[in-house]
Amino acid sequence: MPDVPSLFYTFHFYLFGLVAMASAVVFVTRRSPVSAAMWLVVVMFSLAALYVMLDAQFIGVIQVLVYAGAIMVVFLFVIMLLNLGHPAELADARGLWWKLAAGAVGLGLVAELFTLVRGATAAPYTLPAGYAAQQVAAEGAIAPVAGPLFHEYLLAFEVTSVVLLAAIVGAVVLGKRRADAR
């Protein structure tokens, strides 16, 4: 990516961002959990495209494989197992006060984050423009992530395996039907 992004790049960056935001709005307003899940998959694919455009190709691939591929399939399996695909049975959406509270919180968050967006980044710590793209061109897409992952963040990486093990055991125990239940 050059210093000044090309029109092609800018257009597609905005396109994927707008697709992500529009699909997120549609996702939140769907009554049926299945169509909500499908719209969330659209959001995740748009985000994967944005990751690739931001020189994080490895993260983009992982996003498609893990998030859109694995996590959403688990969600759809649970919807299928509990037979929740019929929107008519579910009186959805909370009352007026909850909606007002949600609107206030949403507006507050948007205002706060807009202020953050406008703030300048600390110049001494920033990398030169186009550094990430050069790094990917020189070392490939995975090495820039793998380096810090197995040096500075090795302990966090190892602890992650314990978290996953605990989650697996917890999910099995919670999901198991008790022997004396019936």
């Binding site: 960056f13 905005y14 961002g17 992500a20 935001m21 997120a24 709005v25 996702f27 939140v28 769907r30 959990p33 909500a36 959001v43 944005l50 931001l54 969600f75 649970v78 919807i79 929740l84 579910l90 009186a91 959805d92 959406a93 909370r94 909850w98 909606k99 509270a101 949600a102 609107g103 919180v105 949403g106 968050l109 948007v110 984050l113 807009f114 953050l116 967006v117």
Partner: peptide
Amino acid sequence: ESLFFSAVLFSIGVIGVLTRRNAII
């Protein structure tokens, strides 16, 4: 631009958590 998209998506998520009653959603 990325921070803008991220802010909007996060706020949509917060609004969804507060307004929806279906636990899966």
